[in-house]
Simulated scan of single mutants.
Amino acid sequence: MKIFHCINTLDKSAGGPSRSLPTLCCGLQNDEFKNVIVAYNSLSPNTNLLDENAIEVRLVSPEVKFIDKINCSNYVASIDSCTNLVQLHNLWTLELHNVAKLCQRKNIPYIWSPRGALEPWSLSQKALKKKIALFFYQRYDLEKAICIHATADMEAQHIRSLGFNNPIAVIPNSIEINNYPLKKWNIGGRDKKKLLFLSRLHPKKGLLILFKAWKKLPENIRSQWELVIAGEGDAEYTFENIKKIIQTEYSGLQIELVGPQYGKDKIDILHSADLFILPTYSENFGMAIAEAMCCGIPVITTTGTPWGVLKEKDIGWWITPSVDSILSVLQEALSLPLELLEQKGTLSRDIILKTYSSEIVTGQFRKLYNWILNRSIVTPDFIYNK
Rank of each mutant, 00 (worst) to 15 (best):
N166P: 07
E359A: 11
K194Q: 14
Y140A: 13
I269M: 07
S251P: 00
P45A: 06
Q138D: 14
K215R: 13
K194G: 00
R58I: 15
P321N: 09
K344I: 00
K205D: 09
V36E: 11
L347H: 10
I221W: 00
Q125V: 15
E226H: 02
C72W: 04
E219T: 13
R349S: 02
A292V: 06
E312T: 12
E95M: 11
G252N: 10
I146T: 13
T47N: 09
T151P: 05
K204R: 14
I209W: 05
I177F: 09
L10G: 02
V86W: 03
K126C: 09
R139S: 15
N90M: 13
S61T: 15
P298G: 05
Y140K: 15
V329Y: 00
A288M: 10
L88T: 08
H5S: 10
N374R: 04
Y180N: 11
S223R: 14
S322Q: 09
I159N: 02
G259A: 09
S348Y: 07
H149M: 03
D141I: 07
I175L: 08
S20D: 02
E256M: 12
I55E: 02
K266T: 07
I37F: 08
L43W: 05
K367W: 00
E119W: 00
V76M: 03
P260S: 11
L353P: 00
F136W: 11
I319A: 02
L208V: 08
T151Q: 06
A39F: 08
L182D: 01
H158C: 09
A169G: 03
Y237M: 10
T303Y: 03
I326P: 01
A117T: 09
Q364K: 15
S44F: 13
T23S: 12
E256S: 15
